[in-house]
Each structure stands twice: as structure tokens, then as C-alpha cells.
Amino acid sequence: MSDDPVRWIRRALIAVLVAIGWAFIAWQNKLHITAPVAFVCLGYLAVVLTIVNLWRTGAAAMAPEHEGVEAWSRPIGARGELEKEKKTLLKAIKEAEFDHQMGKLSKADADAMILTYRARAIEVIKELERFEELDMKNVDPAGRPLAKDSVRDQIAREVKARLEIAGAAKDAAKKTKARADKASKAGKPAVKVETAAAKVETAVDKVETASDKVTTDAEVETTDDKVTTDEPVDSKNAEATS
């Protein structure tokens, strides 16, 4: 909603419209501001805001879906949970230190607590590092080759790959057709070659249809709880959305 580049112009226009209306009301009342005049002004402001917001309600409903930077789900997968646990542990260590200095915890208790928290915090840091390494290697925690991005990115890559294949096939079909034309010009039988080209074009159409379908599914799957929570999360995404 806030990505609208002309929003400031629109807001300024609304402000001008409100100011003109208020000035008119005041002028009509000979600049004598009384309680009724004040509430008429408020009513006018409400009318302007009503029109603007109801118009935007309709416009938003009719607008095409826009899934860009603002993805549906924020990344709260295993990595997100680890980040959260690390933050909690760091605060717990700080709190234990503070409690000890305040006299609420004996040194032995505080040390024992902090030791436990530190051990777990280091485990968490190691786990997080492992995720970073896996990101670098492009494999999942089980060692399977995997794109480092979200499921949608993986599917987008898959679609792109298929389209590239389809593009290559189209090129091949054109080449085959060109060869067939050449052959026909040369008086050679071209039926077999033309049939092969038609088959390739049909295959290309099928791949494109499949790609469209995959793209649609991708939008749904990306936001599915299970998929997002089970997947490692891209750190940039995490930063952008948290």
C-alpha cells in the first residue's frame, strides 16, 4: 500500500480539497467559528476521507494480485526459531548477570545458570552457522542439493528452466521448419520434417501451460504453513521482513 509512488501527491490533493472545503464553510459562516461550524468541518473531513477510502477499497479489490517484495509469509522456519531462541538466551544471560549483581542470585547459581545458557547459546550459534554454510553450498540440512531461496524461488527457477527448454525447442522447431522449407525448395519430400516440427511446437505449448500452472501453484504453496516452516530461510528475506 505504501509503495504507491504518487501517494504524497494524492495526500496533498486531499489536504487541499479539505482546506478549500473548510475555507468555504468558514466563509459561509462569516468566519464566525462556533460549535456547529466546527462539527460541520469535521463532517466534511469525514466525507472526504470516506470517499477516498471507499474508492481505494474498490480499486484495491479490482487491482491485479501483486506479490512482490511483500510476500505473504514472514520466514519463521527452523532458522527463525533458532534466531528467536538465541535472542532469548542472550537476554537470559544478561538478566542472570544483572540479577547476580543485584544480589538476587548467588555467584554459584548465576554461574551455573549462565553456563547452561551459554552452552545452549553456542549450540544455537553453531546451528545457525551450519545453516549459513548450507546456504553457501546450496544444499538442505539433510545434504540434498537445494536452492538457497524459498520454495517460490525454487519453483520460479524451475519454471524459468522449463521455459528455457521450451525456448530451445521452439528454436529447434524453427530450424527444422527452415530446413523443411529449404528441402521443399530443393524438391525433397518434406512431410516427415514438418510433422516433427509440429510435434515439437505442441510439446512447447504443453510445457508453457504446465509452467503457468506451476506458477499459480507456487503462489499458494509459498504461503502454506508447512512448507515455509519446514524450509530453511533466506537471511536477507528474514531481515527484510522482521
Binding site: 500500500m1 469535521l42 463532517g43 473531513l45 469525514a46 466525507v47 476521507l49 470516506t50 477510502n53 471507499l54 481505494r56 477499497t57 474498490g58 484495491a60 479489490a61 479490482m62 487491482a63 491485479p64 494480485e65 501483486h66 506479490e67 511483500e70 505473504w72 503462489e219 499458494v220 504461503t223
Partner: peptide, 22 residues
């Protein structure tokens, strides 16, 4: 998971507030 519908709902809420203020 329709962003446009949710956006519309949010503006609807603002519009509702303006109508009640009116």
C-alpha cells in the same frame, strides 16, 4: 492468500471509520 482482497479490507476499515466519524 489474496493480497488485493486484504488491502481492500484494510481500506474498507479506514472508510468505515470515516463514515462513523461522519
Amino acid at each position: 492468500k489474496s493480497r488485493r482482497l486484504v488491502t481492500s479490507a484494510v481500506y474498507g476499515l479506514y472508510g468505515f471509520g470515516a463514515l462513523i466519524a461522519l
